[in-house]
Design a protein around this nucleic acid. Sequence first.
DNA 1: TATTGTTATACTCTATAACTATA
DNA 2: TATAGTTATAGAGTATAACAATA
Lengths: 164, 164
Amino acid sequence: MTSQEKSPGTAHRGPALRGGFLLAQVGAYASMRFAERLEGLGLTPSDVGLLRMIAVNPGQSQQTLAQALRVVPSRVVSLIDDLQAKGLVTRERSSSDRRTYELRLSPVGVEAMEKMREIGSAHENDMMMGLSTEERTTLTALLAKLAASHALAPDVHPGYGSRS
Amino acid sequence: MTSQEKSPGTAHRGPALRGGFLLAQVGAYASMRFAERLEGLGLTPSDVGLLRMIAVNPGQSQQTLAQALRVVPSRVVSLIDDLQAKGLVTRERSSSDRRTYELRLSPVGVEAMEKMREIGSAHENDMMMGLSTEERTTLTALLAKLAASHALAPDVHPGYGSRS
DNA sequence: TATTGTTATACTCTATAACTATA
DNA sequence: TATAGTTATAGAGTATAACAATA
């Protein structure tokens, strides 16, 4: 009903091809919108992921983090540098192995996590706006199933680097 | 059933928060896998999107393309430079306005489109592997609904640049 | 004077490799 | 000798701004 000129481009390609593209398209859009919301907080999506990893597993070393995120250790350095400069994360030399740091959220970091949760909630509502409650549940379940079938780690966004 | 140590991180956060993250996570994964498949063809996901826009609307100018992709014109220059260097796209001065080029696929470009279609199809199957036929249909429909509700252009992946 | 395409430039992100301190 | 973290450097990707040709 919308094709006025000769332009195809709207309704070509069968369902066999659309799913992968839609996944990438909607996913990139979701990331973009989330990043926009975070700007107000002075954080990037990477920061958020990192903070969550630290919150979930306090005392972790940078190496451990690098492996979990599938990122090069030097990348973690600058990421944590930022977070520390913002006062969200503390680095403390481990007493058992003084080569490593123990990473923890500062009180400010804990507050930031709370704000992030609110932002995440608003983002979720905004993203899902067009779907009914039941549809949201279905979509989330299907996405979770897909994530599981590809062995995607529950909390790791594969967008920290290009390292496989 | 998988939480062995004290580590949470698997089952926290209610359904109210997971959808947006899953969208971004699975979407980024889909993009990554698609990019990997394209490497064999010597193309990037951007190239593919561009080729498709040109295939759908032959004779377009670079400006038109830049607007459709929401990218700065200079970006289109280097993107098309690449495609032309690979022999996939032709630039021809428009006879009505000699400032502009008319962009078209070369015969090689048309062949490449065919290979891309195969790659896309294989990618789709791989991505959806974990879902039944019915589930795939449901997921695709829900994603399409989401895309429509956010007014995402049917064929434009929002990943060409940072320009809103 | 306005528009299309181009070039030159700079900035951001990320990886690689060499280095220091500790084990 | 091996490992954690760091620094320096380089490459890719992308935007901005100045510019030439055409309108």
